[in-house]
Every structure is written in structure tokens, then in C-alpha cells.
Simulated scan of single mutants.
Amino acid sequence: MNKKRIILGLSGGVDSSTSAYMLKEDGFEVIGVTLVVSKEQRESQDLKDAISLGKELNIEHIVLDIVDEFNEKIVKYFIDEYSKGMTPSPCVVCDEIIKIKKLIEIANLKEAYYIATGHYCEISKENRFKRNLFKKPKDIKKDQGYMLYRIEPEIIERMIFPLAKYEKTIVREKAKKYGVKVFDKKDSQGICFAKEGYLEFLKKMLGDKIKPGNYLD
């Protein structure tokens, strides 16, 4: 496998866009991958921004439409778990079985050793455990290591986080310096498939099935 070729999850936001510039600056052959997980995303500004960045950097850019798979494995899981009275964490599950899995699959096809994302997370080699572990990044307020805790050790070995040693304000400054058009784009918040808020989403999807109940400790 080629250790100078890297597959980057490219969302169209400032973090992944800046990561693309940083990785290319470090001498990597960057291949961007955008996962389309909803019908709305197919026509979204984020997708247009990701495509535009790929052209600006003159890198290969793969747009993978996985709407049906995402609905079945993540959205359905989210609804089913809440219906049982559980409190699911869809982003954690998505990172494990959708996003990182797809990046690794494409990396294997392209014979790229590394994959990268714009997560604020760092990797540390812990000899006492004989494996790599996630640790807090420079910007503790943006720490996203908890979202990746289910990733297998052999995959962590192949992951790179370009933003690990930077605070978000510095990342935006770097983005502006690189000429990233989305350097001031607002951070995404909440669940990607429930922009209106998870409660409103559940009401829309479950309707009269939602019943009042007690909080049990």
C-alpha cells in the first residue's frame, strides 16, 4: 500500500477543507470522498463546496451516494432505539459502521494506506497497552475522540487527524490563508438528519406512538 496516498473525508466544511490543504502541503496524494447520506444533501451547498474544493486542489474526488444504506443502518436505528425508551448516539454508530468503514474500503481499493478526517482528535501510541489510543486534541472544547471510541485498533493505525494540534480559531485562520472559500462557514451542530432538532424529528416520524412516561434512575 502507498503510504503517501491518503483518503480524506470531505464534507464541504471548513475543517475537512483545511485538512485537504494541509495534507497536500505535507506531500500526500489526497483523494477526497464525500458521502451523501440524505436526499437533501444531494442538492446541498455543502456538496457543492466539496466538489468545488476538489477542483481547486486538482485532486481526485469521489461522491458516494449511500442514502438508502444510511437510512437503514442509522436513521432506522435512531428511531427504533428511542421507540424502546433508549437514548441512542447515532453519530458514534455512524462513524463506526458507515463513515470510517467507507473510507477504509475506498482506501483499500485505491491502495492508500492512510485515511483522514477533520475530527478534532489525536492518536497516541501507548506501549503499555501495545496499541494506539485516542487522546484529547489541542482544542479540548472541540474534542471529538468520544465519537470514534468504537473504531478498531487496526484501523486507528491508519488514521491521521490533521487538526489535532490546532485550536479552531487557528484552523479558520489557516483556511483563510490557504484561500478556502468556506473559511468562515458556520460549524455544523446536532444530528445531520434531524436539522429541526431530534425531538421534532421523532415527533414527525413517530407521531402518536410517542407517549409520556417517567424518568427512571
Rank of each mutant, 00 (worst) to 15 (best):
K136A: 00
K138C: 11
R131L: 12
K141L: 06
K138F: 09
P137H: 05
G118H: 07
Y149E: 11
F129K: 11
E105N: 15
K135S: 03
I155S: 04
K130W: 11
K138T: 10
I97D: 01
H119D: 09
V93F: 11
I156T: 03
F161Q: 08
A116V: 08
F134K: 09
I140T: 14
P162R: 01
P137W: 02
E105G: 13
Y114R: 14
E152R: 03
I106M: 09
C121V: 12
I155A: 04
E152H: 03
K110H: 07
E111K: 15
P153N: 15
I123C: 07
Y149M: 12
P162G: 09
G145R: 03
K130A: 15
I156G: 01
I160C: 04
M147W: 05
I123Q: 03
C94S: 11
A116G: 10
E122W: 02
R131A: 11
I104C: 12
I106K: 14
Y146P: 01
D95F: 07
A116Y: 04
K101E: 07
P162H: 04
L133M: 13
Y113T: 10
I115P: 08
F129N: 03
D95G: 06
C91R: 04
E111I: 05
E152T: 08
R150Y: 10
S89M: 10
S89F: 13
D95I: 07
T117V: 07
S89I: 11
I100H: 00
E152Q: 04
E122H: 04
S89W: 14
I115N: 05
K138H: 08
L133A: 11
K101W: 04
F129W: 13
Y120N: 09
I106F: 09
K125C: 15
E111Q: 14
A116L: 09
Y113S: 03
L133F: 09
K136Q: 00
K102M: 08
K99N: 10
E105P: 09
A112F: 06
E105T: 15
E126Y: 12
P90R: 14
K141V: 07
A116M: 05
D143K: 15
K135W: 02
L109K: 12
Y146T: 08
H119P: 01
R150I: 14
C91S: 04
G118W: 07
L133K: 10
C91A: 03
I97G: 07
M147E: 08
Q144T: 13
E111F: 04
D143Q: 15
A112P: 02
C94T: 13
M147Y: 10
Q144G: 09
C94L: 06
D139H: 14
Y149V: 14
K125N: 14
I106L: 12
F134D: 03
K130E: 14
N108S: 09
N127G: 10
E105K: 15
Y113D: 00
N108E: 05
Y113K: 15
K142R: 11
M147R: 11
I155M: 03
S124H: 13
I106W: 02
S124W: 08
F161C: 12
K141P: 02
A112V: 05
R150P: 02
K136M: 00
L103W: 01
T117Y: 04
I155L: 10
Y113E: 00
